[in-house]
Amino acid sequence: MFPDIKSYQHSFFSILLPSLLMVFASILTACNNQPSPDQPLTRNGMISGSATPGTVVTAQSKAVQPIEIVADQSHVSSYANGKMSLTIITSPYAICNFIVSYGMNTPSKAFGIRPVTADAHGLANWQWQVESKALTGIWPLQVTATPINGTQTKRSISVTVNLPPLRLDTTKSILNVTSKAVATLAIVTAPSTDCIMTMSYPTHPKTFKGTTDAHGTIRWTWRVEGSTNPGTYPLIVTITTGSGEQANATFSMVVL
């Protein structure tokens, strides 16, 4: 005998229905557990959501360091064609530069004035030659520093330009002489500076001209006339800077 169809259908559905219910329950659970869409860790420079503070650092959150002058590593008093130096502390890796005009119409473009990048500690330094036409006086120098975030900071300081010194080089000068002997006057002043030396003998004044070398030295040698009487004679040296300013000093020659 064949089994009753109704009994068979009842048995089939009684087995299938619980399985289908378990499948539907699994699908609903999976849908409810889907991850939410990605959220930005920062918004407008602020940490948002559940992000851990300090995890993300934005350019806006970086502090800009003021420019500090390192006094013991800076020398900002010199003369035309002399040297100056400057060391600063600012934001690490900032692009640093400065401008100075020394009273001239345009900023100096002398060797050594150029942009530099601060190191990891924020140190930046320069050494440069003062413009040959720099005027004597106290002049402003403006330093700028542009860190990674682009926020520029500035600092103004004063630099001093003096007349060049005039110093006797005693190791190369021979100024105690007899008549008919060879005398030598050697001086040290600013590099590449025009010099005139005038010596006033009683009857034969003489003038020597020249330009100092890269070290600021110049030397004149001459023979003392046999007719020169014993005594002390002034040797007047006058220097002229690129701006036309002058300085002079007097040295003595002794004829024995």
Rank of each mutant, 00 (worst) to 15 (best):
G103L: 07
N105E: 04
T29Q: 14
V57F: 04
F208S: 04
V188Y: 12
I236N: 14
G226R: 11
H121F: 12
K109E: 14
A247D: 06
L163K: 01
D119Q: 10
I47E: 04
T58E: 12
T106H: 03
I69D: 07
L28N: 09
A25R: 09
E68P: 01
V159A: 06
V161Q: 00
T198G: 02
I88L: 07
S19F: 06
T136S: 10
E68Q: 11
K209L: 05
P53L: 08
W220Q: 04
G150C: 03
G137M: 14
S156V: 15
D4F: 05
D119S: 11
V76Y: 09
M22C: 10
V159P: 03
I5P: 14
I138Y: 12
D194T: 06
S7D: 10
Q73K: 13
H75P: 01
D4G: 08
S11E: 15
S50T: 13
V188G: 04
S78D: 06
L168C: 03
T153F: 08
S50M: 11
I148V: 11
E225T: 09
Q127C: 12
S48C: 13
A145V: 03
K133F: 07
A124P: 02
A25S: 00
L20D: 11
Y93T: 09
A124N: 02
P3D: 12
Q152R: 10
I236M: 07
V182S: 12
R43C: 12
Q65P: 01
K206W: 14
H204R: 07
N229R: 15
T184W: 01
Y102V: 11
T106N: 09
M104P: 05
Y79W: 08
M1H: 15
K154Y: 11
T193G: 03
M199L: 07
T211G: 01
S7V: 06
S173F: 12
S108E: 06
T117N: 05
S227L: 11
P40M: 05
S48G: 05
S132D: 08
T171Q: 09
K154V: 15
T240R: 06
L41D: 10
I67G: 03
V57R: 14
E225S: 15
S192V: 05
V224I: 07
V130S: 08
A30R: 06
P164R: 12
I27G: 02
V76D: 05
K62M: 15
G242H: 09
L135K: 11
K206L: 12
V100P: 03
I218D: 02
V188P: 01
L163D: 10
N176P: 09
I67S: 01
V224Q: 03
T171E: 04
A249G: 09
E225F: 00
S14L: 06
A214L: 13
G210N: 08
T106G: 00
G137Q: 02
H75K: 13
E68R: 00
Y8F: 04
D169Q: 02
S14C: 07
T55E: 13
V57I: 12
N81T: 10
